[in-house]
Each structure stands twice: as structure tokens, then as C-alpha cells.
Design a binder for these strands. Sequence first.
DNA 1: TGTACATCAGTGAACGCGCGTTCACTGATGTAC
DNA 2: TGTACATCAGTGAACGCGCGTTCACTGATGTAC
Lengths: 225, 225
Amino acid sequence: LLCGQTHTVVTAREVPRRTQAERRRATRQALIDAALVRMEGGESFDNISLRSVAKAAGVVPTAFYRHFATMDELGLALVEESFRTLRAMLRQAREEGLPPHQMIRGSVETLVGFVGNNRPHFMFVARGRASDNTMLRRAIRAEIRVFTNELAMDLGRLPVLADLATDDLQMVAALLVNAMISTVDAILDTPPDDTHAIDEIRQLAEKQLRLVMLGVPRWRPVRPA
Amino acid sequence: LLCGQTHTVVTAREVPRRTQAERRRATRQALIDAALVRMEGGESFDNISLRSVAKAAGVVPTAFYRHFATMDELGLALVEESFRTLRAMLRQAREEGLPPHQMIRGSVETLVGFVGNNRPHFMFVARGRASDNTMLRRAIRAEIRVFTNELAMDLGRLPVLADLATDDLQMVAALLVNAMISTVDAILDTPPDDTHAIDEIRQLAEKQLRLVMLGVPRWRPVRPA
DNA sequence: TGTACATCAGTGAACGCGCGTTCACTGATGTAC
DNA sequence: TGTACATCAGTGAACGCGCGTTCACTGATGTAC
């Protein structure tokens, strides 16, 4: 706060030094980001090595262990970050509050937009879903289940679905999530600039969601609650 | 055919020697089977090595090259064999020719049965679908598309779906295939002897298929043909 | 404020391992005469 | 049928490579006085 001093020490301090905690956080994030960049190219988490992640993050392989005990732990960090994005997507779709006849179009639009803007996150989840790393696969599927439950709760607020039993809501949500997942797969397999192909994927998704919703008013549970 | 001879040479011939072609075919199949066994444990094709496959097949690593130029070629052989099983499944469901109200239950039953009896094939396809080996992933997705088209043709023969346009039939088939895929994923993630869990999966699948079919009679294409 | 010590994020050399691929080979099966 | 040569499925040694993990280390940041 006392300005105008000439000590070089003070001048150096004007460019604030990073604290250890800041450096630590920055490196950790660099490792996470490095892994995500590798996802973007279409690789799966299984096939990226600790050494390659460290290299891309600009640290020596052994530095990795200061942040994660194993690659599995890094994987969990990626799961957390990716599903933060997916939850944001759900929130945006919810907050748009479109009327029913525009809701499907709007939701698909939101989905396509999020995939385009967060390719690495979606790539990680799409590939990791069928990973042969049991821990990672379980973690991702558990998060998808949570995501499906949140969607089921949102659906329950819609008039057309208001009188469905809880597990029927979950069943419908799961069906919609399946359609979304295959839509995401299709988008990720398409070059982002092929707007024509993306548009066809969008239309197919809209049709599928519409068809499912058409069945809902006629749905009667096998065992009435 | 002249029996009773004492020459050791003839005795040896009584146990018929394998021709080169027979040995060749046997080794090739041993390599394919070895890879499939590795699938059964839940590993993905990406993560099995040429050396481990050769070892499990009982040949030296270099012998592999007498049959496949790369692991990719072995992968294509697995795709072919796996989808032969899937096509057999579709054929069985078709030939059962159940009346509409039992058809869904019967199809799900057939699916669950096939997955139980052909775990390695389904494991290979389920994991390979999201493989980061582009060639393998493309091959599997192309086969799934063919499978979907076949299903669409079968659906077109059902009265309730008879007047749908071709691409609407494909859309419905894709929706059903999505539900089947997620059903297969769930089964493969469940120990085969957990009959209670399998039963819940079966029931969920039936509900989802029923809901989709409920929507069909109300379906009107956006642009009438 | 200055000094002396502690902490700890990141370094760099080294290890043993399984990998894909090469190469010259062996010996049983196949074929021409 | 018997012989002499060709074919070719499978062998075994060797290679260079990237991997995960260990270890003792360096030097900047943090802290107690």
C-alpha cells in the first residue's frame, strides 16, 4: 500500500508471485485439461497414458503423483467436470420454459449446442460409458442414472406426464436419455462443420422424442398404483 | 480300408492327419475364439494385445501374421461373427410369429436369452461400439445400421405399422434398437446368475417397447408423403 | 523487518515389463514325376 | 507306389519403444522467531 518505493524486492512483488496453493491448483487443472484435449481427438480415456497426460500438461511424469494417486483418480475428476456440464445443459433446458409444442425442438437444440461447445466432455462420457475400466464405467453409468432421475423429476412437472407413477416417469426418462445418447454418439461421429448431417441428426432426434411423447397419454401401468 | 495291417505307417494314418488347410482354419478360429474369451471378462478389443491373443490361441506371436495382417483384421472377423449371432436372433424373433400382444414379451425374451448364451459376442459389440479404434467403431455402427434396417423391414409387415413411410419405419426401428442396446448394456453389467436383476431389466425393456408402440398409431409424419 | 528452518511441487535418472514387428529357420504336408 | 522338390504354418531369437513406478534431489514458497 505504500507506493513509490524503489526496492527491487517491492517491484518484483508488484507482479504477484503465485502461492504454492495456486500453482498446485493450476497444475491439477492442466492435467485435467490435457486429458480432455486428448479426448477431443476421439481417443478413449483407457488408451491415454499417465506419461502422455503429464507431457501435455507440461510437467514431468512423476509430478502427476502429486495430484492423483492413479489414472483412475484423474478419471473421476473428469467424470465430475463432465457431468457439471451435463447438469448445466439440463438446467438451461428447464429454464427456457418453452410451451409443450416447442419444448422438444428447444431441448434438442440445447443438446446439439452443448455437444458442439463441449465436445471433449461429451466424448469422454460417450467413450467412457463402454470403457473396460470397471470403476470408470460404473462411475459414468451411476452419473447417467442420476441425470435420468433429474430428468424424470422435470418431466413430472409437465401436465401431460403429471399422473404417471414415479417408476413410469423413470422409464420414460430412460427412454429419452437413450435417444439423447445415440444422438450424441451420432454428432460426435460427424465433423462439426458438416451442418447438413448435423441437421439430419437433429431432425431424427426430434421425431424420436415426439413419438415417445405421443405414446405417453395412452400409457396405463400394468399394475395400477 | 484294408484292415489288420501291421505297418506303423498305416496305423498312424488311421488317426487321419490334418491337411494344411484344416490346420490353418483351426488356428484362425483359435485366434478368433481366444479374442472372444478375452471379451467375456469385460475387456474391450482395444485393450487386448496381439501377443496375448496368440498366447491364448496356443501359438507363437509371429504365427498371428499368417492369418491377419493386423489386429484390425481380426477385429473385422469378430464383427462378422458377432453379427451373424445378432442376425440369427432377429430371425428367431421373426419366425416365432407371435400375435401382437405377445410379440414384445417374446422379443425381449429372445434378446435376453441370446445375450445370456452369447455373452462374448454381445460384449464385443457393446464395448466396440464406443471403441476409439475408428475402423472398428465404424464397422460396428455400420452393422448396427444394417441390423436396424432389417428390423424396419420386419416392422413394416406388422398391421399397426403398415402405413408408415420408409424413413418413419427406420426412425421407429432406431428407437427400438436404442432401447435394446441399453438393455444389453444393463444385462452385461449384471452377473448372469442374478435372476432378480435380469428380470427387472427385462420388465423395463418391455415397458419401453410398449410405450414406443403406443405412440405409433398416433404418429403423423410432419410432411405427408 | 531479517534470519533460519520446514514444507512440498516439480525434477531427472533409472528400473523392469509387455508390446508389435523383423528375420532366418524348421519340419510336416503337398505335388510332380 | 516311391522319390525328390516345393510350399507354407508355425518357431524362436532379437530389436527398439513407451509404459508405470521408484528414488533421491532441488529450489521456491511458507513459517516461526
